[in-house]
Amino acid sequence: MNGPFIIFALLNVGFVLLISPLFMSLIKKVKARAQGRCGPGLFQTYYTIAKLLRKETVYSSASSWVMRVTPYVCLSMAVVAALFVPLLYVPEPVAGIGNVILFLYLLGIARFFMALSGLDAGSAFGGIGSSREMSLAAVIEPTSIVVLAALAVVARSLNFLEIARDSAGMLFPVSATMILIGVSLFIILIVETGRIPVDNPETHLELTMVHEAMVLEQSGRNLAMIEYAGAIKQTLLIAILVLVLMPFGLVTELSVAGVLFAMALFVVKGSVISVIIGLFESSMAKMRLFSLPNLFIIAFFFSVLTIFIEVFA
């Protein structure tokens, strides 16, 4: 734990915490505009979280400590995971922080507890959501790992911080294969954040819902924490995509001007990706649950091909 790393940790986590709700509202805004509605303001997610924090929390009488612990676990895992993906400044990795697999599994703990809390209240909706979420997570996992393997092969490193250090300051991705990896990462982003066509974040209709059903029994401050954790997770995945496709702007030397510039740049880059996500969602219809594996297998095909092309050609 050296000085630069602590600065990085504070800077990165603080920035992620600050900016995550913005992208959430931005996507909503884009979707609303695409549907011809005006849509919520850009600060709506901040207001929602603040409102939820002030509300009382309702627990089911059937629920146990699992329900009470889950929101804290989700939020802290998201915050710890925020140390793994550099947004502004990239230090030398310390103690293996930045390891891609560890990152994936940190998000996994949050999902594990969330799925348990879905079962905890004894409601059938929670069970449905939990079962579907874990099944989908299982089916997409090979794709995630193979994409990360492709990333590791291309970037010759297993650590996001190292990958970022190698590519920082470059205008274009390190290699053309990165664009292909970017496409796969985009699909993973869509699946992990539960967006159309995999899941619909807007509806609470029991037939379509996956993620929303799982958190149906959460309320008040707990719901606020879970929503916040979701927003952070989304920002981190966007940041990985940015890292792969648009590495320009990351600084490797600490300076106030550089960091400020990187912040501004990240907001722009993140907004671009958020707009793309919003448009993508608007142009799609929700898929039937059991036709999702087909989509995933095409994503898997894609990432395998990426490695294949990178390795063989």
Partner: peptide, 8 residues
């Protein structure tokens, strides 16, 4: 956050 809780 608010500390109010209700069990129902």
């Amino acid at each position: 956050a608010s500390r109010e809780t209700r069990v129902t």
